[in-house]
Amino acid sequence: MADPLVCERLTAGYGRKPALIDAALGVGSGELVCLVGPNGAGKSTLIRAAAGLLRPFSGEVRLFGRPLSSWSRREMARRVAVVLQSGIVPPLFTVREIVEMGRAPFAGFWGDMRARDARIAEEALAAFGLDALADRRLGELSGGEAQRAVLARALAQEPELLLLDEPTVHLDIHREAAALAGIRELARRGAGVLVVLHDLNLASAFADRLALLQGGRILRAGPPLEVLGSEELLDAYERSVRVVGLPGQPERPIVLPDFRDPGPRYPGRPR
């Protein structure tokens, strides 16, 4: 079967300025790929171009072997779930109403759902521990609880490809790991996952492969150790990080700020 996502020589951006240049990246079935890199590296742009929300300047995106342009929005939404950073959390809707919107691509004209759709939504609620909050309005919840509702909505789409931009913002550290474990489980069942993570350690712990971006270019892609242990990583983060191996999992190192580094020097600051 064709890979869920293939990007070839993809250049995209806003206005005339490309924010992503010549990117080549694939996500296979069952594979979890993390996009990492400093702010403004082009991670979100890659997600948006892959989701068909940003028309590329050049290059190509293929979903399940077919060019992006040949997909209708609804057809795509039945197989690809997207969680954007720019998504709005409408405060008056209940958690259940939001999660049920994950079934919108399958619902009828009035949003009418079959019993199966409702059951899938219920399962997604349960998967993110939202049963007790199902009838609460989003505006009454904490940022982390609302973010779990957003992830449950993506899960309710039963996607074969997930494109996630910073899906763990606002989550507590244990919820963060639980959310990624949930995403990992989707990949184990065969979905392809492309996820932007700001947190390098989370990426290292859960990803099959990392792609490191800086200045719109993919500097390096490969297994966590290969990318995190590379010169390019040190360059991307201005050489002020340290990469440390943990006993028992040498192939998934962690990255720490380099506390010995005095950081950027400002004029007037004593040396």
Binding site: L53, R74, L84, I88, A104
Partner: peptide, 16 residues
């Protein structure tokens, strides 16, 4: 209803 999620997020859920 779906549009309340934002234009892009709604589009990603199949909305024209």
């Amino acid at each position: 209803n779906v549009l309340q999620l934002g234009d892009d997020q709604a589009a990603a859920l199949g909305l024209g």
